[in-house]
Every structure is written in C-alpha cells, then in structure tokens.
Write a protein that binds this DNA or RNA. Sequence first.
DNA 1: ATAGCCATTGACCGAATCGGTTAATGGCTA
DNA 2: TAGCCATTAACCGATTCGGTCAATGGCTAT
Lengths: 206, 206
Amino acid sequence: MEKFFSLPIEKQNILIDAALTCFGTNGYKKASISDIATAAGVSKALIFHYFGTKKALYLYLIELCGNILRDEINEKFDDGVTDFFDRIKLLSSIEISVMKKHPAMLSFLNSVYFENDDEVKADIKTIIENGQGENLRNRIAFKGTDISKFKDGIDPKLVMKIFTWLVDGYLSKVPIKTAINLDDLCEEIDECINLFKKNFYREKYL
Amino acid sequence: MEKFFSLPIEKQNILIDAALTCFGTNGYKKASISDIATAAGVSKALIFHYFGTKKALYLYLIELCGNILRDEINEKFDDGVTDFFDRIKLLSSIEISVMKKHPAMLSFLNSVYFENDDEVKADIKTIIENGQGENLRNRIAFKGTDISKFKDGIDPKLVMKIFTWLVDGYLSKVPIKTAINLDDLCEEIDECINLFKKNFYREKYL
DNA sequence: ATAGCCATTGACCGAATCGGTTAATGGCTA
DNA sequence: TAGCCATTAACCGATTCGGTCAATGGCTAT
C-alpha cells in the first residue's frame, strides 16, 4: 500500500472519493472494484495493484475516515464555546469542511455503521471498538454547554435531535454533493439556527 | 400477472415488501431477483412466473405505490383543516399509515426518483409525467393554509423545509421500519410539532 | 543512446451471479 | 384417479465478480 501513498495527493483523493461513493451508496458486497475504477477513471487492475484486495481497500477507507474526522475535530473544536447553538454551528462547520474534502465521507461512514456483510462485519466491529465510543454530535453539543438560556419547557435534547435529523435529511435528499450544495446547506443551517435561537432562547439572551 | 393478483393478499404483500426493500436500497440494477426471492422466502422462478421480467416487476411497483399513495391521500386528507401544523400532522399521519402497510414504500419511491439506469429511465419518466406533478408535501401544507398565525419574521416555508428534512432524516437513520419504530416517529413528530407551534405562533393562537 | 524501473493497462482466469427457462413435483379438486 | 396449477430445483448462456499477469510505455540514471 506504500505504492498508493507515494501518489500525488490529488490522485489519491480521486480514488478515495470514488471508492467512498461506491461503497457508501451500494454497500460492501454490491459495490464492485470495476465500479470504483470506472468512477475514478483508472483500470481495475490498478486498484488491486495499490490495495491488494477489495476488503483491504474497504477497511483502509474506514480507518482513513476515522482519522480525518478525528483530526478535524481536534483542530477546530473549541471547548471555550459554551453557547448551545454556537456549538452546533461549530459541529456543522466541522462536518461541512470534512465533506468539502471528501463529499461522500459521512454517507460512507453511515453505511459502514449498518454494514452487515460477513466478509467485513467482524473487522468493522473491532475497528469501531478501538476508536472512541461516541455519539459525536451529542458529546460535542452537551459537554460544557450552557442550556439555561432556553425558555422553560424546551428540551435541548429534543432540539438537538431535530437538528441531527434535519442535517441527515438534507444530505440524504442531495445525493450529489458539490461545493455549491454544501454552501446551500451552510446557509440553510444558519437560517435554521437563527430561527431556533430567536424563538427558543429567553429574551435576555438574544 | 393475473396469477399474482389471485394470490391471497398476505402473500402478495410479502413479495411486494421484499421487492420494495431490495429495489429501494440497492437501485434497479444492483437489486437482483434472487435477492428479492430470498427476502420473500420463495423461489426465483416463482417471481418470473408472476411478473415475467425484472423490469415488469419494477414498473408495476411504481404504479402500485403511486396508487396506494393517491388513495390514502384522497381518503384521509381534509381540505377543511386550515391550521398549518394540523395540516402537517395530517400529512405525517398519511405517510405513516402508508408505511405501516408497506414500510419500504417511501424509500422505494425516493430511489425511483433518482434512478438512472438506462433499462428503466425512460419508463419512469413517462409514468411520473402521467401522474400528477407534485410537490406533495408543499401542496398539502400550503394550499388553503392559514399562515397568519405565525409570529412576525418567521418563514412558514422554512418551517416546512425543516419538517421535511427532519422526517427524511429520521427515516434514513432507521433502516428497519417496524411498527414500533413508526410509533416512535409518530411521537417524535408530535413533540416536534408542539414545540414549533408553541414557539412560532403568536400567543393568542395557542 | 540505452538500459532498466515501475506505474498502468488490456486481456485473461475460474468462480459466482445475472435474468430468464423448463421439466418435474406435489398438493388440490372434481 | 385424472388432471390442473402453483411452486421449485436444476439448468441455460451471458455477464460480472475478485483477482492475476504479461506487456506497454514513460521516466530516470547512466
């Protein structure tokens, strides 16, 4: 696999994104190396030259995505931010910047989470266990967050759930993730946060 | 195809749901008749005995889902309801009752909307054109709806968008749709609607 | 100029799976 | 007991699968 790493990063990314897309939309079994090769514009043989087997490529992608996500969080997340909605904005900006580098990454990780093929099921489990036990979103949104700003009778956890589903719903409806789509998403998220903040916070915190 | 219709409805539904699930999650090309047969617990040959070809089965499913959806709307939708959130509740109850009959139906219809395989692309287009031109959700939510109840500065269209994404997000995160899941969804939707109504409507309308 | 190296590929492998067919089975009816 | 019909196992040729390999061709070092 050293052969792959010595490629220019551009070319690496083309291949990675093609693989993330194919595996993410079709699952492990139904995504074929031919599909990935075609999507990446290279020959099937080249992919085997780099990764040896389909399984090795798949598992490598999982580790890679985990690392990218972790690095992005370590770099951008700021414990000093205590406002609930600022935290959510931060989290969204992390996810979006990840998707600007690898548009199919989150949907791939999601598909991995539900993958059930015997050839990779066990390996996925051990990889996930060796990584940290999340929920990423909830951990980031609630650890050290000031939720006293909410009006009485509003459940911040419900607001968080709404937000999570909302982003997932948007992304599931936009199967082709261009930079334009992601900027749109950014704007919609901002609108949404403003709407929530304005109506869910006590007046003195506006 | 008369052979299929003369089956007891239970058996018809097992086969239909298996096919909706397979086509919905894998798309036309990657969903095989063997997959569907296995999921339905019958032999592959029997499916060909009923529907002749894979394509015929697929196109039949599209028409069937369209009809079920139309019937459900005609039966349950009530023009007299003018409250925005009551309309949304009505719409959600329609979608959920449809999914209680055929859990994979909406995700199947969504996948049909994005299907791009040459073998069925053209046929899908003509079927959709012969059906009505929606957006179902928007049409139902806004035609004859009283939006003056909203506080100033709140855009009902944004609220609608949020709601749509939210439901899609929930459903995309729950790949196995049991009756229990759907009841959960129902509760969450109610919580969400109450939250929105309480905070987005002017006080005199609460 | 040329020798050699290495990324890249088309052609190929046996095995599996594809959409679809067919002959045989077996339960039901008359 | 004759016949009908739903259902299936076994099979068809074609395609695609994961994976291999020999040949190509561009690059570098001499």
